[in-house]
């Protein structure tokens, strides 16, 4: 920002920076606390006053990925010494890792599978929603559609109802067609959630792309489909990236339907993490460890697309 700045503007600037700092602290503290808790020993997780300084350990993650039970008797010194280091940590916390009686293999808690389910479902539904949304938006943007405004409103109106309202009917329908507890079931649901959003956002982006681009390609000997892929799509990538981030976050975070529609095979992380709260006193460190890992994909995805996202957010306001 060039030009003369009065002292009033300077103060305004300082206040703005201070406000940003305060906002950052408010927003980042929970993330810090989840991260810290994920590395705390269980007995330090819920102390009063809160423990800020501690020696980090990975026992919450060990417990997150394994089945375990309360220790009835302390393990013998021999048992304790024979156990690998991570199992010793679980012993220290007053629990033991459950092993298969015959083979002695550690029984997994299933978090890895749930995490994998989350990735499969969120990524697939995001790809579907963004690609279908882009094509639909292109159609609405470029062709004369009878009742275009009504259709667009109809598409938008699918978001006016809180999705949970239809959860029970959906559950019953899914049970009839056998989509309960399947990846496909959740993928269809999440794609449907995100599609209207994707259509609206992408229509905004595609409207911004001059239609002369395609016309030039059409005159130059390309079909409309080729023109779409060679000319429109590269220009729409920014918008698609921004849309993908939002769709991914929605699908990744969805809790209610995942809880109702899935039980084991296709269960995603969100309903699984709270189920690990355990019996007796809640073990917040395991919850925190699950949540911590759960945060990573969104952070990575957003980080990778950050340039597109920034340009995308300005919605073509600074085109050229």
């Amino acid at each position: 920002m060039a030009g003369v700045r009065t002292s009033r503007e300077k103060w305004g600037n300082r206040i703005a920076i201070a406000t940003v700092f305060v906002a950052l602290i408010i927003m980042l503290t929970p993330i810090y606390w989840i991260t810290a808790t994920a590395f705390k020993p269980r007995n330090l997780a819920t102390t009063i006053p809160p423990t800020v300084v501690f020696t980090p350990e990975v026992s919450p993650f060990v417990k997150l990925f394994t089945k375990r039970s309360q220790l009835r008797d302390q393990p013998t010194q021999k048992e304790y010494d024979a156990a690998p280091w991570w199992e010793q940590m679980v012993f220290d916390g007053g629990e033991k890792v459950v092993r298969n009686r015959k083979t002695g293999e550690v029984r997994p808690s299933g978090y890895a599978d749930r995490f994998k389910n989350s990735l499969i479902i969120a990524i697939t539904s995001t790809l579907l929603a963004v690609s279908m949304g882009t094509l639909t938006a292109y159609g609405f943007s470029r062709f004369k559609v009878r009742g275009e405004d009504d259709w667009m409103f109809f598409i938008l109106s699918t978001r006016m109802l809180p999705p949970v309202v239809v959860a029970i009917p959906m559950f019953l329908m899914y049970r009839v067609v056998g989509l309960n507890d399947t990846h496909l079931g959740l993928i269809i649901l999440y794609t449907a959630f995100n599609l209207s959003f994707a259509v609206w956002i992408m229509k905004g982006f595609i409207d911004e792309i001059p239609k002369e681009y395609e016309e030039a390609a059409l005159v130059d000997g390309y079909t409309r489909m080729q023109a779409f892929f060679k000319v429109v799509l590269p220009e729409a990538l920014t918008g698609m990236a921004a849309t993908a981030v939002f769709c991914f976050i929605t699908a990744w975070n969805e809790y209610a339907f995942a809880l109702i529609m899935t039980t084991r095979k296709a269960q995603t992380s969100p309903p699984f993490i709270p189920s690990q709260i355990g019996s007796g006193l809640p073990d917040w460190t395991v919850i925190a460890a699950g949540t911590f890992l759960f945060l990573i994909p969104v952070a990575v995805f957003t980080f990778l697309l950050r340039n597109h996202l920034l340009r995308g957010m300005s919605f073509g306001a600074i085109r050229k």
Binding site: P210, L218, D220, G221, Y222
Partner: peptide, 27 residues
């Protein structure tokens, strides 16, 4: 349009921003 063997110059030039000049002319 593709089958009429004509060329068109638009008022907005309509150059593809994601391509270099060479790629634009080659298109």
């Amino acid at each position: 349009a593709a089958d009429r063997d004509i060329a068109f110059v638009f008022q907005s030039f309509s150059l593809y921003p994601h391509m270099t000049v060479r790629e634009n002319i080659t298109f």
